[in-house]
Simulated scan of single mutants.
Amino acid sequence: MKPRYDLEERTAKFGECVISFCKSVPKNVITLPLIGQLVRSATSVGANYCEADESVSKKEFRQKIGYCTKEARETKHWLRMMEPPRIASKPKPVNCRRKPTPSIASLPPFGVDPAHSPSPHALLLSN
């Protein structure tokens, strides 16, 4: 029997974690637009996965999963822009640990070693 990966739950938790992280970021003229972009892209991963999960064909599923991948890459970009030297102060880390599981394509946590991922900001440190 194949292991079950509850990607709907994992992508929802990822979005929640990013929202918690963004709440800790100091608000200013630079960070406000970045926070908005980050929240939109991170929460879109889960929303697009839900759409993919309800697909009626393999073609539609692949297309929707492709959207998940694009949003994941965009999220990684916005996290990079939120790196402390770029926003001038260090946001409070948020605990986003998850159980170790085999990696699944490019869905969350997007290549981060779960044993070393204390926050979504840790995505920046993985490359």
Rank of each mutant, 00 (worst) to 15 (best):
R4V: 07
E8Y: 10
R10F: 07
K13N: 07
K13H: 09
F14R: 06
F14A: 02
E16Y: 12
E16C: 09
E16L: 08
V18I: 03
V18M: 01
F21G: 00
C22T: 06
N28G: 11
V29T: 09
I30W: 15
L32W: 11
I35P: 06
I35M: 11
Q37T: 11
L38W: 10
S44M: 08
V45I: 08
V45R: 03
G46N: 12
G46I: 14
N48A: 05
Y49S: 08
E51F: 12
D53F: 04
K58P: 03
K64V: 00
I65Q: 04
I65R: 01
G66I: 00
T69S: 08
K70V: 14
A72F: 05
R73L: 10
T75P: 07
K76C: 03
H77D: 14
E83K: 09
P85W: 12
I87R: 08
I87G: 01
A88F: 15
S89V: 09
P91K: 07
C96V: 00
C96H: 01
S103A: 11
I104G: 01
L107F: 06
P109K: 01
G111C: 03
V112H: 09
D113T: 01
D113Q: 06
P118C: 05
P118Y: 00
H121G: 10
L123M: 08
S126P: 00
